[in-house]
Nucleic acid binder design. Structure first.
Length: 883
RNA sequence: GGGCGAUUAACUCAGUUGGCUAGAGUGUCACCUUGACAUGGUGGAAGUCGGAGGUUCGAGUCCUCUAUCGCCCACCA
């Protein structure tokens, strides 16, 4: 047995084992090896990503599931990888260029993309390396990148398939435009943020009349693109205006007043300015009324030639100047403060401009139908279940997905145009001739695809789809998808749709949605707030195991996680506790062979049985809670077992045996200890992989499995034939000791002061059992002497307490504080009387007795008897002290 | 405007199909450097389970209303 160092050195241990696991190929799985497949695909972090606590939580959970499956003997792969993160990555490289005084146009498309690849090669593995520090047991041989050749192939394939099925189309529609990133965004990429804006009420003149009308808008600059004013046809106030003409201020353009049901007469003035090129509703109205569409801005959010005098101004500058001009012309009725939600670019926070633009879309309704079905019929289930509703709500109101982006970094849209015959077609190859007219005057679409258009294929593209290979057949579908709620729409929902579309099967059967990691004030961790806790700092300060264990211990299913630095002491301290327990065992194990763990079940002492019963409970609880994704309860069960059952009680009971027992007794106890410890260590491994591996070897358990990673997972309780009565007796013994300790504490005995205890055991049987256990009880009570007697009667005043096994008296030298004793007993009697009254009330309630289940009534009856007995004893004791 | 979550000890949180005499960790107080561990041990104090109704023999748990905080969704200009 290797000697365990006095203190545990996580840094060196963690590095050592991770390297060893990698070298031994422990994380790798092969379909040809067969067995039960178990697969998890990682939510690929952005290639620009830097590990934060959210990743730490997310990947810890996946690692726990993966490691358990592996120990269960399943053919396990956890597929890692990164996302090319189109806009985000392009932004990073553009910022880099800006520092060099350049922009992407200076480089040109090809050079720029090369530059991004350079960046990727240099920095792109940061997050993967950080995941390794967490102990993530990903199959790194299977690491994928969404712009890999294979994955790009998958993107082309599905694009062409959907295009050919008419599920992808090009449309001129109002989309969300980020004028900073200069690209279209999907609806999901536009984040609505509540802002206090203004509602501007503008006066428009009716041509040929003195009458002026008032329209309201939150974006006055769009009036430059107005092509109508609309009223509700049933609105009596404006009936006469329908068909009249409005002269727009500034540009003096003439536009009609139209009638449309969309207009709500109750809201504002009941008159709406119509800007088909900048407002989604107005766009629809414009179509039905055949209105012109006037776009007033450039791609960069600058007013264009349609803006007349404001051409060249930034959109917000324009708003200011325009308002001033209107004001001085007396054309502003009023400006109200107005709370509303404004779309912001999810990558750069710029206010999104809804504008008309030709883009590519995926028709979603046909894809959504089977995806709704899959969740409805339970083939896929969300944990916690409430996310079903969120998913359904989105799915049932799904809108077409804008997938084209006007950036350079990403999968280029595989659409080709022939400039001679105007033919348009999709192709997976870089076609240089028109398939229709054979002209070579062809060009490819300039746009690239939304990043999520590659990640929605992840569960099968990582295995080489569209090739139907053995890996794909074996590992697809994956088991559990572990992710945060913020990407249910972006990613989870779309994966379900794509999986059902091309694989004709669900991509995973469970979606576990964990909470968001927040700071101790409940704020989201963010760089700008400066409230982030860096997981790597925590690993440095405590350890990876401590980070992992602590994080899971405070993660209730699906709830947000609030953390502060000191939370990680939980795991660190726990690790230390286990380490020291192991050292203790090691100290006493000299000359003992840990291979020899087959203790005789017939020889189990009550303490042994109690420990093994607790071990059984820990196994059952860990398994059950893992199955239900209750990681906090799983870790708590292990914490409780190691710390309390193993260290606080068993290890203390073992001391007299190990210090003074016979060779045979020592051997038996060590067998029980090593058996329990090595079993619990395996249960703990998924949560604390490094330290458990170190101990697995350090304690010499590696003879059975040369890594704890592949040691058998304790599936169910291991020791049978435990006598429940005996376990209960030991519980009573704990109680007895606790009561004895309270007596010591009340009389301020120091540890060095020994005391004599007399125990009036409840029954002869109990007396005998206590007699057998005397040594350990004496040790735990620091007793000089213990006398057990069912008829014990105190001579004079003695401090006493009642326990499950009987009454314990302490004889001490010097004066007993009789008044204090009486007061204590009286207080206890009060409490007992109170409880008794409650129980009696319940039992005298006929409804309770007749309606409550028999077991519940029986419990109350038993409790009543106990309370009566206890109160009588207490009364007697008080009487004695009083006399 | 619609939906979801939270509200339990000083703090951060558990509490599964109602059976609770409401738990844990941290902090706090007292004692303890005892032959695994002071990153520790022993013991203590600390809660009208946000509020109001209701269902029930029984409610922290279920229902209704309500307050506060947080999140998500939404094309009323």
């Amino acid at each position: 047995m290797a000697e365990l160092s006095k203190t545990y050195d996580p840094k060196q241990v963690e590095e050592k084992w991770y390297a060893k696991w990698m070298a031994d190929g422990r994380f790798h799985g092969e379909s040809k090896e067969g067995g039960d497949p178990f697969c998890i695909v990682i939510p690929p972090p952005n290639v620009t990503g830097i590990l934060h606590m959210g990743h730490a939580l997310n990947n810890n959970i996946q690692d726990v599931l993966t490691r358990v499956a592996r120990m269960q003997g399943k053919n396990t792969v956890w597929v890692p990888g990164t996302d090319h993160a189109g806009i985000a990555t392009q932004n990073v490289v553009e910022r880099q260029l800006a520092k060099e005084g350049m922009n992407r146009d200076d480089l040109g498309r090809e050079k720029f993309v090369e530059r991004v690849w350079d960046w990727k090669h240099e920095y792109g593995s940061t997050i993967s390396n950080q995941l390794k520090k967490l102990g993530a047991s990903c199959d790194w041989e299977r690491e994928r990148f969404t712009m890999d050749e294979g994955l790009s192939e998958a993107v082309l394939e599905i694009f062409c398939r959907l295009y050919d099925k008419d599920l992808i189309y090009r449309g001129n529609r109002i989309i969300n435009w980020c004028s900073r990133c200069q690209t279209a965004l999907s609806d999901e990429e536009s984040e609505h943020i509540d802002v206090e804006g203004a509602l501007y009420h503008l006066r428009y003149a009716v041509k040929g009349k003195k009458r002026k009308i008032v329209v309201a808008t939150t974006r006055p600059e769009t009036m430059l693109g107005d092509t109508a004013v609309a009223v509700n046809p049933r609105d009596e106030r404006y009936k006469d205006l329908i068909g009249e003409t409005i002269v727009l201020p500034i540009t003096n353009r003439e536009i009609p007043i139209i009638a449309d049901d969309y207009v709500d007469p109750e809201f504002g003035t009941g008159l709406v300015k119509v800007t088909p090129a900048h407002v989604p509703n107005d766009f629809e109205m414009g179509l039905s009324h055949d209105l012109p569409q006037i776009n007033v801005m450039t791609d960069t959010g600058i007013m264009n030639e349609n803006a007349g005098p404001y051409e060249g101004l930034d959109r917000f500058e324009c708003r200011k100047e325009l308002m001033e001009d209107l004001k001085s012309g007396g054309l502003v009725e009023k400006v109200d403060v107005h709370q509303h939600a404004v779309g912001h670019c999810y990558r750069c926070d710029t206010v999104v401009e809804p504008r008309l633009s030709p883009q590519w879309f995926v028709k979603m309704k046909p894809l959504a139908r089977p995806a709704i079905e899959a969740v409805n019929d339970g083939r896929i289930k969300f944990v916690p279940e409430r996310w079903n509703k969120t998913y359904m709500g989105w799915m049932e109101n799904i809108r077409d997905w804008c997938i084209s982006r006007q950036i350079w970094w990403g999968h280029r849209i595989p659409i080709f145009y022939c400039d001679d015959c105007n033919h348009e077609w999709a192709s997976k190859t870089a076609d240089s001739a028109c398939p229709k007219c054979q002209s070579s005057n062809v060009r490819q679409d300039e746009d690239v695809l939304d990043t999520w258009f590659s990640s929605w294929l992840w569960p099968f593209s990582v295995f080489g789809w569209p090739e139907n290979n053995d890996d794909l057949k074996f590992y697809y579908p994956s088991k559990t998808l572990v992710t945060g709620n913020e990407i249910i729409f972006f990613w989870v929902a779309r994966m379900i749709m794509s999986g059902l579309e091309v694989m004709d099967d669900i991509p995973f059967d469970t979606v576990y949605i964990h909470g968001t990691v927040r700071d101790d004030q409940g704020r989201k961790m963010s760089k700008s707030l400066g409230n982030s806790i860096d997981p790597l700092d925590i690993i440095e300060k405590y350890s990876s195991d401590a980070l992992r264990f602590s994080l899971l211990m405070i993660t209730a299913t699906g709830q947000d996680v609030y953390i502060s630095d000191d939370k990680f002491e939980i795991g660190r301290n726990f690790g230390t506790k286990i380490w020291n327990a192991a050292r203790f065992m090691e100290m006493h194990s000299e000359g003992f062979d840990v291979k020899d763990l087959a203790f005789s079940e017939a020889d189990l002492t009550p303490d042994d049985q109690h420990l093994l019963a607790k071990l059984n409970e820990a196994i059952a609880s860990t398994n059950e809670n893992l199955q239900r994704y209750r990681f906090n309860d799983a870790t708590l069960a292990l914490y409780d077992f190691f710390w309390h059952s193993y260290c606080d009680w068993y290890l203390e009971y073992a001391k007299p045996v190990l210090f003074r027992g016979t060779r045979e007794q020592k051997k038996h106890t060590l067998q029980v200890m090593h058996f329990s410890f090595s079993t619990a260590l395996r249960l703990l491994h998924p949560f604390m992989p490094f330290q458990t591996e170190e101990l697995w070897h350090g304690m010499g358990y590696s003879h059975s499995a040369d890594s704890i990673m592949v040691a058998p997972w304790p599936e169910k309780p291991v020791v049978t034939g435990i006598d429940a009565k005996i376990v209960k007796y030991v519980d009573g013994k704990h109680d007895l000791i606790r009561v004895g300790r309270i007596l010591r504490a009340e009389y301020n005995l120091t540890n060095k002061q020994t005391a004599v205890f007399n125990i009036r055991a409840a029954t002869e049987r109990v007396a005998k059992q206590i007699e057998v256990d005397k040594d350990s009880i004496m040790a735990l009570l620091k007793a000089e002497e213990i006398n057990v007697d069912v008829d014990f009667a105190p001579s004079g005043a003695m401090p006493s307490g009642m326990s499950a096994l009987g009454t314990i008296y302490m004889s001490i030298e010097g004066l007993v504080n009789v008044d204090a004793e009486i007061a204590k007993l009286a207080a206890e009697l009060d409490e007992v009387t109170g409880h008794l009254a409650n129980v009696k009330k319940k039992l005298s309630n006929e409804n309770f007795v007749s309606k409550a289940p028999k077991e519940v009534v029986a419990v109350q009856e038993k409790r009543q008897d106990e309370l009566i007995e206890k109160s009588e004893k207490l009364k007697k004791m008080i009487d004695m002290l009083n006399s």
